[in-house]
């Protein structure tokens, strides 16, 4: 049985396969879109059932804060895309700096979000608070969906930031290189998705009149 010893398959599942990792990431992103898709359906149904109430409630939101956050996220998408290009060209230091910038943008986003939410909570608009409980049903649904959808989005911002944190760590350790940058690329893909979802959330809650 000499042929037994040392035999290994060429197509091993333990080989490094950047293509497979990226494909896995894309499939995961599909599931994310469907996760939010369910919420968009709920939003659509209740908006069409309560158009007036949704309109009234949307005036409560601060368009300026929303716009600022949109700009912040768009910039962060640009910086993460640039950091992938940087690592492709072999510039590890620049890649790390750009990823750190992305994280800074994420923090700015969350700080603004914090002020937005606390303003609503001060006005008693969080589910369970006095003002909220006396709102007409349509308006309370609007605020509930606002908290639920932006909350889930912020949760994704946090997850995305952690993944980027790992990518920075790997790059700093020198394990992400010009030839092997799958993690940075996947972090970028995830980050773009988070951005993309916000691009839909922003007009749905802040802009449609």
């Amino acid at each position: 049985m000499e042929h037994v010893s040392g035999f290994s398959l060429p197509n091993s599942g333990h080989n490094r396969d950047a293509e497979a990792s990226k494909m896995g990431m894309w499939l995961f992103l599909f599931t994310e879109i469907l996760l939010f898709g369910g919420l968009f359906i709920v939003y659509m149904v209740y908006r069409s059932l309560n158009p007036e109430a949704f309109l009234m409630a949307s005036f409560e939101l601060n368009v300026w804060m929303g716009t600022t956050n949109t700009v912040v996220l768009l910039v962060s998408s640009m910086t993460i895309a640039m950091s992938i290009t940087a690592i492709q060209k072999g510039n590890r230091k620049l890649s790390i700096q750009l990823m750190v910038l992305t994280l800074v943008a994420a923090v700015i986003f969350m700080v603004i979000k914090y002020f937005e939410w606390s303003a609503k909570i001060e006005h008693g608009l969080f589910p369970g608070q006095a003002v909220y409980d006396n709102l007409p049903p349509g308006e309370s649904l609007f605020f509930f969906l606002y908290f639920f959808m932006t909350g889930l989005h912020v949760f994704h911002i946090i997850i995305g930031s952690i993944v980027i944190g790992f990518a920075i760590h790997r790059t700093a350790k020198g394990r992400t290189t010009k030839e092997k940058y799958t993690l940075t690329e996947n972090a970028g893909l995830l980050w773009h998705l988070v951005d993309l979802i916000w691009i839909y959330l922003f007009p749905l809650f802040y802009l449609i009149h």
Binding site: T31, E32, L34, L35, F36, G37, G38, L39, V42, V45, Y46, L49, N50, P127, G128, P137, G138, S140, L141, F144, F148
Partner: peptide, 29 residues
């Protein structure tokens, strides 16, 4: 599967916060 995931989360939220997502007596469907 993600659709059931988000739907079940909504049931949870409705139970925890008492919002009328699906309960018709408080405006849900």
């Amino acid at each position: 599967t993600p659709i059931i995931g988000i739907t079940l989360l909504m049931i949870t939220a409705e139970r925890v916060f008492g919002v009328g997502l699906f309960d018709p007596s408080i405006g849900g469907d």
